[in-house]
């Protein structure tokens, strides 16, 4: 009796274990075949915030393409790039540098389709709370905060423009920190954890508008020349008909149309314009000369 019970239990456990392996793999592979557009974005803001911002745009894209749109939140910039390259994503909101990385990792096939008008002349702001820092040269021997290592406006372009001004980030700063996000950089500078830092102009403006930064204490002492930043990129082997539909859907968005106004406002866009790979050649060169691309 006992032996039969034990044997039964063992068999049962074995079957359960087997089932727990096979069932989800079947379900999983079936789900991947469905008609779903998988979208993500680099985490320059909190995923909850990104998800909230994306919700109306997602509904709009669902209507325009006739596909189910699912948004995948992420906390790692590089993971978005790698997922696009391994075809785990169809459409992604990338920064200039992450686009260049994606282009390289997909052997040049990733296509940037659309960007905000603002992204064609993007800038970064250098901020400090130290009254003695007035220009790039004063930064020698100080502690400095970048955003994420993969950020265009929070790391790559500022590093490049510093280099042009004769400041080598790895040698001339006493300590370099990566705060991870633009608003965190401001918090570090305000608290005196870093003598100076750099962040994207759009986030700086947003923080100033929302009075989240004390402008009597933290001030901008330099602004970079303009460069191309953020875009929406699709993976290269996506159905060209779908790519066309997506591009047109973005171009149709009009801030004067009350139905679109909410989408535009959440995306902080006045207008969407087409973009092309060549726009980001400058970023690629900058990344090479700053030693971030090998």
């Amino acid at each position: 009796m006992n032996h039969t019970l034990r044997r039964l239990a063992l068999k049962g456990a074995f079957v359960c274990a087997l089932a727990s392996f096979l069932v989800p793999s079947l379900i999983g592979s079936a789900a991947a075949q469905e008609n779903v557009l998988r979208v993500s974005a680099i985490p320059d803001e909190a995923p909850t915030e990104l998800q909230r911002k994306f919700a109306p745009l997602g509904k709009y894209l669902e209507k325009e393409t006739g596909m189910k749109v699912s948004f995948v939140p992420v906390s790692d910039y590089a993971a978005v790039v790698e997922s696009l390259a391994t075809k785990k994503l169809d459409l992604a909101w990338l920064g200039g540098f992450t686009f260049v990385q994606a282009k390289i990792r997909t052997n040049g096939t990733a296509i940037p389709i659309i960007q905000r008008e603002e992204d064609a002349k993007f800038t970064s702001k250098f901020v400090t709370a130290d009254p003695n820092i007035k220009s790039y040269v004063d930064l020698k021997g100080k502690t400095f905060a970048f955003g994420s290592p993969s950020s265009t406006s929070g790391h790559l372009m500022p590093r490049f423009f510093l280099q042009q001004a004769g400041i080598a980030a790895d040698k001339d700063f006493r300590n370099v920190a990566f705060s991870g996000a633009h608003d965190a950089t401001v918090a570090f500078v305000a608290a005196g954890k870093a003598d100076a830092g750099v962040l994207n102009a759009s986030v700086w403006d947003k923080l100033v508008e929302a009075k989240k930064v004390d402008t009597d204490k933290v001030r901008v002492f330099a602004t970079t020349p303009p460069y191309f930043d953020y875009n929406w990129t699709v993976r290269g082997d996506l159905d060209p008909a779908l790519v066309k539909k997506l591009t047109e859907a973005f171009l149709k968005l009009d801030s004067k149309n009350p139905e679109h106004a909410e989408i535009m406002q959440l995306q902080r866009a006045s207008k969407f314009i087409p973009t092309k790979r060549e726009n980001y050649d400058g970023i690629e060169k900058a990344a090479q000369s700053a030693g971030l691309l090998k």
């Binding site: 359960c16 274990a17 089932a19 727990s20 392996f21 069932v23 989800p24 793999s25 079947l26 379900i27 999983g28 592979s29 789900a31 991947a32």
Partner: peptide, 15 residues
Amino acid sequence: AAAISFVYLGIGFGA
């Protein structure tokens, strides 16, 4: 619990 976990996560090990 194990079976539910796999189904909930929906990991496509087949893929």
